[in-house]
Nucleic acid binder design. Structure first.
Lengths: 150, 150
DNA sequence: CGACATTAAGTGTAAAAACATAGATTTGCG
DNA sequence: CGCAAATCTATGTTTTTACACTTAATGTCG
């Protein structure tokens, strides 16, 4: 636990909402740090991984750059260049969309699917570290975060 | 609500922990996006803001670069350069520490304190948008996130 | 004291993010 | 149809991050 974690608990005079704000940002950063260990092994950035996951969700259909952008965790990403990197590693293909020549069809390759499978295995192991909440509690946080954003 | 938010709810076959992982990352990105609006007005990055907040917490004491690093939400930040930027705007001072000449004493200036006060006001207004949870629910999420990280 | 490990802060560099904008295509409407 | 607005992707540029390394100072232990 970092010192911020301690600090969050001590901010008695702050509103619960301020605490929640910082707590969520801090927890996300903590998760990112942990995940990066796995990503780095495969020379992927979190965003590249995120893109591949979305593309797998569409497979065997293609996804447009815009669809990717909409579904990315980080909306500000420059998807074109992320695709460039993935294409350079043969993890995706990119070809013009037939029905709308402005669009581009991005599809995950077998190599990309295989890489995700490998990472899946590691993720399953890694996620076991995160079971300090009961499934019920995890569900509860999920529901409350959804409600918060609504 | 972005499409990921919808998607999270639909991932019925995933473990609650996977959902929670993505949900926290997504919520943090959502919050960052909202906050950036305020920061940009004042030409601050989230990390510069974070540093200023920590320095205000220490005021009128100084903070070492290491103390800042430990308390930053994002641990990977290069604090030296963040301080450079803040110093260039006269929001902090930097002077050698007397007791340990390796260390540097970083202190928030009056200008920095004043800037934070301005931002505080905006934040209070902004945070009102985040009251779709009851205080009790906010407390609950805070407790559960703390437990999750432990 | 003196060699060696440790700690603190800063820097060089390549990669990635942020932001604005361009170029090409499609859409909608008079 | 024909033109303006909207949409989709890509690119140029600046700033920030990630990571390895350097320099300086302190701590440790013989």
């Amino acid at each position: 636990m970092g010192s911020i974690g301690e600090e969050i608990k001590q901010m008695e005079f702050w509103s619960e909402y301020s605490k929640l704000l910082i707590n969520v940002l801090y927890t996300a950063s903590w998760l990112n740090g942990l995940q990066n260990g796995i990503f780095k092994e495969h020379k992927l950035t979190p965003q590249q991984y995120n893109s591949l996951r979305i593309l797998r969700g569409q497979y065997p259909e293609a996804a447009s750059v815009n669809l990717l952008k909409d579904r990315m965790i980080d909306k500000m990403s420059n998807v074109s260049r992320i695709i460039d990197k993935l294409k350079a590693k043969d993890l995706v293909t990119r070809r013009p969309c037939k029905h709308d020549r402005r669009q581009v069809d991005v599809t995950i390759t077998d190599k990309g699917l295989k890489l995700l499978e490998t990472i899946d295995e590691q993720m399953v192991e890694w996620e076991k570290q995160l079971h300090s909440l009961s499934p019920k509690e995890a569900t509860q946080v999920n529901e409350l975060l959804d409600k918060w954003r609504s």
